[in-house]
Simulated assay, not measured.
Amino acid sequence: MKFIKQFLIILGFSYLGEVMKLILPLPIPASIYGMALLFAALLMGIIKYTDVKETGIFLIEIMPVMFIPAGVGLLTSWENLKPILLPVCIITVVTIVTVMLSTGWVSQRIIRKTGKKDE
C-alpha cells in the first residue's frame, strides 16, 4: 500500500501539472508544471520526502527503459530525419555541452556558497 500511496501522490501532482497546462497559455510542458508543484510542496513541507522517496527512486531507476520507445520512433522516422541529420547532431552536441557546463557551474557555486566539500 505504501508504494500505491506514493505513486498516487506523484500522479496527483502530474495531473495538477496537466490542469495548469490547460489554464496557463505558456509553452511549458505539463510535466514541468507537475514537477515544480511537487518540488514546492516538498520545500513547504506539505509533502514529506519520505512520502514519495521509494517510488521516486524506482521511477528514476526505470527511466532508461522509458527511452526505448523514443529510440524506436527515431528509427521509424529515419527517412524524415535523414536530410536534417547534420543540423540535429550539431544542435544535440551543443545542447549537451551547454547543459553539462551550466550544471557544473551551478553545482560549484552551490558547493562554494554552502561551504560543503566532499573529501
Rank of each mutant, 00 (worst) to 15 (best):
P83I: 06
V52S: 08
P27T: 01
I9Y: 05
I57A: 14
G17F: 06
L43F: 07
V65S: 04
T55A: 11
K116M: 14
E54G: 04
P64M: 06
L16V: 13
I110R: 14
I60P: 05
F39K: 03
G34E: 00
T114E: 11
I9N: 08
G73E: 11
V52W: 09
M66C: 07
V88P: 04
I96Q: 04
K113Y: 12
I84N: 12
F39G: 05
A36G: 06
F58R: 08
E119F: 10
A40S: 11
I46L: 12
V72G: 01
C89L: 15
E119C: 02
I111F: 10
S77K: 15
I91W: 06
I47Q: 07
S102N: 10
K48P: 03
L26C: 01
I110D: 07
L22K: 15
M66Y: 07
P69K: 02
I32A: 14
A41T: 09
Y33L: 11
N80E: 11
V94S: 07
V106Y: 07
I57S: 11
I84K: 05
E61Y: 10
S31A: 11
I111D: 11
L8P: 02
L85D: 01
M20R: 06
K113D: 02
V72R: 00
L16I: 14
F67R: 01
L24G: 08
C89V: 14
Q6G: 08
K82D: 08
L26F: 08
A41P: 00
I62Y: 01
P83H: 04
Q108F: 09
W78L: 14
N80K: 13
S77V: 03
F7R: 02
D51G: 02
S31T: 15
W105N: 13
V99Y: 09
I32V: 15
L11P: 00
I91H: 05
T76L: 15
G73M: 09
W78I: 14
K21S: 12
M44G: 10
R112L: 05
L42Y: 07
T55M: 15
F67K: 04
K113E: 04
L8W: 04
K21P: 05
L85F: 13
I23A: 12
V72N: 00
G104T: 09
K117W: 10
G115T: 12
G45F: 01
